[in-house]
């Protein structure tokens, strides 16, 4: 380690164990490697399904670590959910010699990775596949991949076999360091929460809507906490006052309460595959949200 501290950011969704992994890494660095270290979440990391960010800073002995603000720049960024890559804030501040580790099955290379620095290392690891096979936590697999990628961290005892990881090259197109989180293009989105995209909160399944079966009884509407069901005025002189037209998956967190409640089986549980939600989404605010 040079005189500069090593800065690592864990980008995750609440419930996946990112903060626990960050704390474990910092503790091991302090207790086993004799480094100075600190781990801190960006905010209260207690909401299951919400975007969370945890930061770890490590420094050589003798160099004090001051401050616990969110890391604006990072040497390594670990992404726990591939959906998070859609938001440029996820990899903002990655240094040109930095490392990005993301959890995704083999051959899954999102287009968004083109925004990374050309000189940065990109590592893909099928953390969820490995975790399911070995009956362990995916956060442990990702932590292992991170420790395997940095020689300094191998002694922590978390490092896993580097063969599990795939190093990708030729993806990034950006010259130099990426700008930090606080400098997004344009203004931050203020005011209403309707501009938030909560797709990453879904854990693998979504409700799929079948209009032919729907009896427009609004039972789903009255149990949905997220207002993601889109209604239109019923046909004039028709049977229904209002008719359900679909789901805005931008807001759907996949609790599947509508599926549980639907008396006509018009809402069915479906495994989410890439692009599925975008194909079937009906926008709730077509004039406001792009």
């Amino acid at each position: 380690m040079d005189s500069r501290s090593l800065e690592i950011r864990f980008e995750s969704v609440g419930g996946l164990g990112a903060h626990a992994a960050a704390e474990a890494l910092a503790s091991a660095a302090v207790l086993k490697l004799g480094l100075n270290g600190s781990a801190f979440p960006s905010c209260v990391p207690e909401r299951k399904g919400a975007c969370v960010r945890s930061c770890v800073r490590l420094a050589p002995p003798g160099q004090a670590l001051r401050g616990s603000g969110e890391l604006q720049a990072a040497d390594a960024i670990v992404v726990f959910h591939v959906g998070l890559l859609r938001d440029p804030a996820t990899f903002a501040g990655l240094r040109k010699d930095g490392t990005l580790i993301y959890a995704a099955p083999a051959k899954s290379v999102p287009d968004e990775l083109a925004a990374l620095p050309a000189t940065a290392r990109v590592i893909r690891v099928d953390a969820y596949g490995i975790a399911a096979k070995q009956k362990c936590e995916a956060s442990g697999v990702l932590l292992g991949a991170l420790c395997a990628a940095f020689p300094l961290l191998r002694e922590t005892g978390f490092a896993r076999d580097a063969k599990e990881c795939e190093e990708l090259s030729g993806l990034g197109e950006h010259e130099g360091d990426l700008p930090p989180v606080s400098e997004p293009n344009g203004e931050p989105r203020l005011g209403s929460s309707i501009w938030n995209d909560l797709s990453v909160a879904r854990s693998g399944s979504l409700p799929s809507f079948n209009r032919e079966r729907c009896i427009h009884c609004a039972m789903c509407e009255i149990v949905c906490p997220d207002l993601c069901l889109v209604w239109e005025e019923g046909e004039k002189g028709g049977r229904f006052q209002r008719e359900l037209t679909g789901v805005d998956y931008r807001y759907c967190k996949g609790c599947l309460r509508c599926v549980e409640t639907c008396p006509a089986s018009a809402m069915l549980k479906k495994a989410e595959t890439p692009g599925l939600a975008e194909r079937f989404a009906v926008p709730l605010f077509p004039d406001l949200v792009e």
Binding site: I194, A218, P225, Y251, K253
Partner: peptide
Amino acid sequence: IRNVPKEEYYLPGHRTCAGCGPA
């Protein structure tokens, strides 16, 4: 249920957990 007003004053996009009862 069909007499319940259709206007909403609590909009989507809030960061509660999936399946939140209080929301």
